[in-house]
Design a protein around this nucleic acid. Sequence first.
DNA 1: TTATAAAAGAACTAAAGTAGAACATTTGTA
DNA 2: TACAAATGTTCTACTTTAGTTCTTTTATAA
Lengths: 217, 217
Amino acid sequence: MLTPKQYKLLMFIDNSIKENGCCPSFEEMKSAVGIKSKSGIHALIEELIDREFIRKIPHKARALEVLRTPRFKPKDIIEEEKKIKIALQNSSAQIPLYGKIAAGTPIEAIAYENETVSVPFELVNKGAFYALRIEGESMIEAGIMDGDLAIIKRSETAENGQIVVALVDDNEATLKVFEKKSDEICLKPCNKDYKIQHYAPSQVKIQGILNGIIRKY
Amino acid sequence: MLTPKQYKLLMFIDNSIKENGCCPSFEEMKSAVGIKSKSGIHALIEELIDREFIRKIPHKARALEVLRTPRFKPKDIIEEEKKIKIALQNSSAQIPLYGKIAAGTPIEAIAYENETVSVPFELVNKGAFYALRIEGESMIEAGIMDGDLAIIKRSETAENGQIVVALVDDNEATLKVFEKKSDEICLKPCNKDYKIQHYAPSQVKIQGILNGIIRKY
DNA sequence: TTATAAAAGAACTAAAGTAGAACATTTGTA
DNA sequence: TACAAATGTTCTACTTTAGTTCTTTTATAA
């Protein structure tokens, strides 16, 4: 019935109209179908008009209308869809990278969202996650090294002994072992050269709990 | 079907009528669509009338009626499609997990391929990779902890100072810092409780070089 | 190779969009 | 009613985007 390219184009046009409400331009179709020249799109569209799959309002730009879509998919398309399924199974999650965090001297908490990193799904189960780049040596005895990527699960609370991202006095974010005592909160580094920090509970806001580490050599 | 501007205007008019009960003026449309002249709005409206999306009561101000809007896909379908797109872009590599490796007492090298793990593409550039589960504490000073997943790049050779998977006497695989001297190969643990091991070059086969670490808490 | 078809590319034509001004109509209210 | 303010229409001139047509290139199979 239709060639793979024709089918792909037809479905793309149908999709675009349903999704964006407006008909795609030839340029958009080019990149969607994977053709580098507008004349190719032109030929495909003429074919689709001939076979009465689409209609065109003459002398108008972006004026295509899908009349019908075929029941059967070309074989290549089916193959491709299988590949997508496999890719989906192996896909990783995309989480924002919130700049660097000092694991030694605390630095300012970073509020902007610029980069994202992809992490294996195993590290991000349920909840919201973000990543921080470790800077400094204060957690080295917990196997967290300078330059590591820390995968953090958003949380406002933590259990004693967990490694947390803590915001101190609203302007310093730091990765430390959390311990809440009756009257104070201790943030413990994992490096004997660093001292345990003691704060009033009101000074410390938990920003998340360490969920994973990714290191690249 | 519609051009982007036409669509934007149509939706704005439809929305305004539904929200405010009355048709917006050209001035309002101007700022909504981002056009600095009324004539542009006029042209767009004439087009929309031609294509029978709106109707106009002649000789009346603010007297437009929306006849129809392009039909849409259900939201959940769009969401799903977006997820697929993102997942495809971020799909991660699937590499085999070759069982556990002793980072303390060496254990047998595992030859079978059973499980696989997905890792971010950042950790696996070019070449063949596999993953090993760390067991033991011998590399703890390099930030490699018991239970970590080591991402290994296949290689038969290594530079001094690199962390390698070494097979000793064909039956023990171990993760150590590699150092080749003129007459022997040293495999150095990163833990002062463990001793440096010295072997004849013929005893040691490099199986790969450490390329990354993934840890889950 | 040669014939063929698909694709790429360049050159061209047409449509869409932008902008401003002048003009015409409607609408509210003094 | 009459006027001013708000609203809508038309025109010209121009820029950008979109679509068409033709020639050249590339790939493929007889």
